[in-house]
């Protein structure tokens, strides 16, 4: 697979459409540029969790991120994520992710032995340098398979 990536995350109409379909969203402002412009918007709107695609964009090999954080892909769970929007994100925006701090904590879990929690913080700026979105992401690693 070729990975030749431009800097930043270009928000593209086709990708917004595909992403919106993958979450079953029929919101016209995700799919229909004519509707978006009629609503006074520059283009279609990116869904709230659209930037999670960034986590896999520009990574030559996504599992390397897990290795760098000392995580075992088999036992990693996504704990949660928080998005704080300064303004909507539109197709045509080019976002740049600025990684912030990473906090790693270990605590004793109830089911899977000790659990490692990794919180990462990312700020997204647009092509005009405006802060558009702040994201906190939490990954959890159990000591073994969590059987529920």
């Amino acid at each position: 697979m070729a990975h030749i990536n431009p800097p930043g995350l270009p928000v593209e109409r086709g990708k917004v459409h595909e992403f919106a379909n993958s979450i079953g969203a029929e919101e016209p402002l995700y799919h229909d540029e004519v509707a978006a412009k009629a609503a006074g918007l520059p283009s279609v709107v990116a869904p709230p969790t659209y930037t999670s695609t960034q986590a896999f964009f520009g990574e030559k090999n996504a599992p390397n991120m897990f290795k760098e954080l000392g995580l075992d892909l088999r036992y990693v769970l996504h704990g949660g994520q928080e998005f704080y929007y300064e303004r909507p994100i539109f197709a045509g925006d080019i976002l740049t992710a600025e990684p912030g701090e990473t906090n790693i904590t270990t605590k004793e879990g109830k089911r899977g032995g000790s659990m490692k929690m990794v919180d990462t913080f990312t700020n997204y700026k647009n092509q005009d340098g405006e802060l558009v979105l702040r994201v906190k992401n939490t990954l959890l690693q159990t000591a073994g398979v969590v059987k529920e």
Partner: peptide
């Protein structure tokens, strides 16, 4: 999480979200 985000969007509109957390 993406499907759950449709709740505030379908209810209040695609540009209405100030925050969303899961």
């Amino acid at each position: 999480a993406g499907i759950l985000s449709r709740v505030p969007v379908e209810w209040f509109g695609a540009t209405a979200l100030k925050s969303y957390g899961i």
